[in-house]
Deep mutational scan, measured.
Amino acid sequence: MPVRRGHVAPQNTFLDTIIRKFEGQSRKFIIANARVENCAVIYCNDGFCELCGYSRAEVMQRPCTCDFLHGPRTQRRAAAQIAQALLGAEERKVEIAFYRKDGSCFLCLVDVVPVKNEDGAVIMFILNFEVVMEKDMVGSPAHDTNHRGPPTSWLAPGRAKTFRLKLPALLALTARESSVRSGGAGGAGAPGAVVVDVDLTPAAPSSESLALDEVTAMDNHVAGLGPAEERRALVGPGSPPRSAPGQLPSPRAHSLNPDASGSSCSLARTRSRESCASVRRASSADDIEAMRAGVLPPPPRHASTGAMHPLRSGLLNSTSDSDLVRYRTISKIPQITLNFVDLKGDPFLASPTSDREIIAPKIKERTHNVTEKVTQVLSLGADVLPEYKLQAPRIHRWTILHYSPFKAVWDWLILLLVIYTAVFTPYSAAFLLKETEEGPPATECGYACQPLAVVDLIVDIMFIVDILINFRTTYVNANEEVVSHPGRIAVHYFKGWFLIDMVAAIPFDLLI
């Protein structure tokens, strides 16, 4: 008679799926529990143990900040960024110097990925580790590398530091407007667009060049630039800015003055950032001319202004700041037409079709709590990747769950009947059967004279019903998954307890 339990259901295979997918890609990662103190490590794979030199037993239950890997060259700011990422709910990448158990130093890129439950609360953290440099290539500990984003994938490793954006290309926007319009339909740009040429040739750093990471940081200074100062900065030398009595002219307006920039070969870094931020506020060169004239017309309804409409929906549905990093990277690809469009465009503009998908598509409701890094690593669709929660398995109709209350009560009843059979069957065979043979035949009273025979008949009927119930009862397979398919249940029961239950259900007393 089957006594099969499996009270692990309803099970959740999400954690096993993450481990299996990460292991298949030869990654070095740990999984931490966000619900406990210090976000203790609950799993670390073999790749991480080989990377740091510690065994799994030495890593388990330690804080996922990996303070046991810190050393003299470990930056405090990087460690603080990892700790801050564990307090938030967004994906974050941090470069930090770690030390192995043998004392060797290596520069590592740590990717902190939160995993949320159905309520939107962070319950786990996945920390992925990628070695960037070994100890002989690690720089000085005073050099802070965590304020910069990861290198873009479309640049060669040897040319990542030679990417320079020439400031004269930004200063000569109005001069290039006529050349853009003359391109017409034969050019790649839309009317009114501004073409910015980027020099990728390796050259020595000069005062006129600005690194790509500095251009990325310009967006942080746009908020500090007032509207009046932006307007004066875009007017140009024809209309000098008016300053109040006793007030000095704005240095932001002076930063885009061609006369002032041409007199000296070098520009201050602050002026460069502010000038680029001011130019980015204009949607095209037409807006710059309109600002000089004193009238700013409404933005025209053409394809170039609607190019950012799908980007707005993608940004609203993005799951991490990696989408913004990807957008900034692609927006700086050289030799393309940049349409400086305000994100607050007309909502009635139709979304044009684009061959290049900048932001990841909208994630469906079932995966809105899973970050983009987890979705990318697992390579699963929205119909396959579940949320991290207890999910009731989908069972067929008329199927009994093996952990249901009805099955528990039924098993206790069958257990009592088995005990009765084990006690009274030998007793009936030894004593009652002998008395029946010696006594007179009682054929007239039937079952009324033999109450134990009636009980034995009921017990046999219950055993037959138990066999039928076992054909529709779920079970737990070797992978700790609840199986509810009727065919698989029948095959599993035939290979197991079916023969024993059938022999126990045969009414031998009635056959004798």
Rank of each mutant, 00 (worst) to 15 (best):
D199I: 01
W154A: 14
V3Q: 15
V377G: 04
R35S: 15
S264F: 06
S322A: 09
T367Q: 09
L170T: 11
A78V: 04
Q84G: 09
R62T: 13
A80D: 08
R242T: 15
G149M: 06
A175P: 14
G186S: 11
R164P: 14
R159W: 12
A156I: 11
F29N: 01
S55Y: 01
M137P: 07
G183V: 06
A382Q: 15
G53I: 01
N339C: 02
I126P: 01
C108W: 01
V8C: 08
V115G: 02
S318H: 08
F48W: 13
R281G: 13
C39D: 04
K373I: 10
C105M: 15
P251H: 15
A285D: 14
I359M: 05
A190Q: 15
I336H: 14
D213L: 05
P258F: 08
L338M: 15
S351F: 04
E289M: 14
P241Q: 12
K93G: 09
V131H: 13
E90G: 08
H254R: 05
G139L: 13
E214G: 06
S207T: 12
P258D: 13
M308Q: 11
A307R: 11
C276A: 03
D213W: 03
A85R: 01
T270N: 14
S261H: 11
V222N: 09
D16G: 13
P168H: 06
F29W: 01
A223R: 14
M218H: 10
I336N: 07
D199C: 01
V115Q: 14
G294Q: 13
T162Y: 06
A253E: 15
R92D: 08
D286V: 12
I288K: 07
D119H: 08
T367R: 12
I42N: 01
D136V: 06
G183R: 08
H221E: 12
L69Q: 01
S379W: 08
S207C: 05
P72K: 06
L212G: 07
M137N: 15
A228S: 06
R269D: 07
T367A: 13
G53V: 01
L200K: 15
V41Y: 01
S278K: 12
V374S: 01
R56N: 01
A290S: 05
Q11D: 13
I336K: 14
E372N: 14
I19Q: 03
P114G: 02
N257Q: 04
T353E: 08
K93N: 13
K93H: 07
S263R: 09
I96F: 01
S304C: 12
H143N: 06
I358P: 12
V138R: 14
E50C: 06
C64D: 01
K101D: 01
I42R: 01
A382M: 03
P297T: 09
Q247V: 15
G71M: 01
V131C: 12
V215W: 09
P141G: 11
G236K: 04
A83R: 09
R328H: 12
S239I: 07
E90Y: 13
I123E: 09
A57H: 09
Y99E: 01
M124Q: 03
V94F: 01
K373C: 07
T17Y: 12
V384C: 02
E208S: 06
G71S: 01
R328Y: 04
L343P: 12
A79T: 07
F125H: 06
F48H: 01
E37T: 14
V110Q: 01
P241L: 12
L256M: 05
R366M: 15
K373Q: 10
A203I: 06
D16N: 14
N317R: 02
H302P: 05
Q61E: 14
G345R: 06
A97G: 05
V115A: 05
D346Y: 05
P241I: 12
A169G: 15
R92T: 15
A244R: 12
L212S: 05
G71T: 01
R326V: 11
I31P: 01
N257G: 12
A57N: 13
T174W: 15
R366N: 07
T65D: 05
C44Q: 01
P298F: 08
P334G: 08
P310H: 15
E118N: 07
A121I: 07
I333D: 15
D342P: 05
